[in-house]
Amino acid sequence: MSPPVSNELPLTLAAQQVSVTYPNGHTALSDATFTLTGGTICALVGVNGSGKSTLFKALMGFVTPTAGRVTIADAPVREAQRKGWVAYVPQSEEVDWTFPVSVEDVVMMGRYGYMNFLRTPRPVDREAVTAAIQRVGLSDLRKRQIGELSGGQKKRVFVARALAQQGRIILLDEPFTGVDVKTEEAIVTLLRELRAEGRLILVSTHNLGSVPEFCDQVVLINRTVLACGPTAEVFTAENLSRAFGGALRHFDLSHSTVEAHDGRQVTVLTDDERPLVLGQGGHLEYRDRAAHQKLVDEREAAKTTARDV
């Protein structure tokens, strides 16, 4: 796919003291402040009901903040949206699955912002759609009516739509729930490519273990922003227990039966594909030291390039 972003300056998404109170009087979010700049994958992490989806809706302008404001490149979000810069993959697609549209029709909807008022697809739109469908591995199913897909495939359709839109900012609300490991890995690979193209990706997830593997930044929320910044700084035992309270299960090696004869090696089994492991003092441990080093190097290189531009 053509990288339309790389030669432009990365965008900045800023939330300033955003508060959201729903009509029923429930304040789902108060005083949320953070800033993100293109070329990053940022995880949005918090317990159920902590306001992740609410934050996405506030960023998208679907709910009007009762206080504070959201800007993209120092302008109101609406201006960026009109330019097709912001792609959004909702959590539970409140979608009518019986609607007579095919996979490619839905993906094409990502391109409407670039078309004339008749929304007639141009060759470039068709190419973008084909490429996006291919990238999520749905090429064989592109003519299917959307109701005739499995849950994970449905999810991928909406990821493909965000890809086809080629947004410079991509918001994904729990894209990994209900998808298998293979699909999750495919989506993660895609997100990494998008990051390399200079896009800004904000993704909410409950999959704590995989966060350090592909997210360079984290926003930790529980009805407000508890912490935000580089993953290693935010993902500490202290912050996580503030965010999750008793909701996380700990396994403290020093008080366990693990002894010196076990060496540095224990086997951790979890129902989640990737366990989150914190070292002494609550710092992050990575599963694969070499891969992590490579990631750090890449990020450094990206920063240098960004500065050169």
Partner: peptide
């Protein structure tokens, strides 16, 4: 007929329509 695709988008997925401004 001229606006059918725009109306279709707004009917099928209002949040995508809003996301596109």
């Amino acid at each position: 007929i001229a606006l059918r695709r725009t109306f279709m988008l707004a009917t099928f997925d209002p949040s995508q329509a809003r996301a596109l401004g």
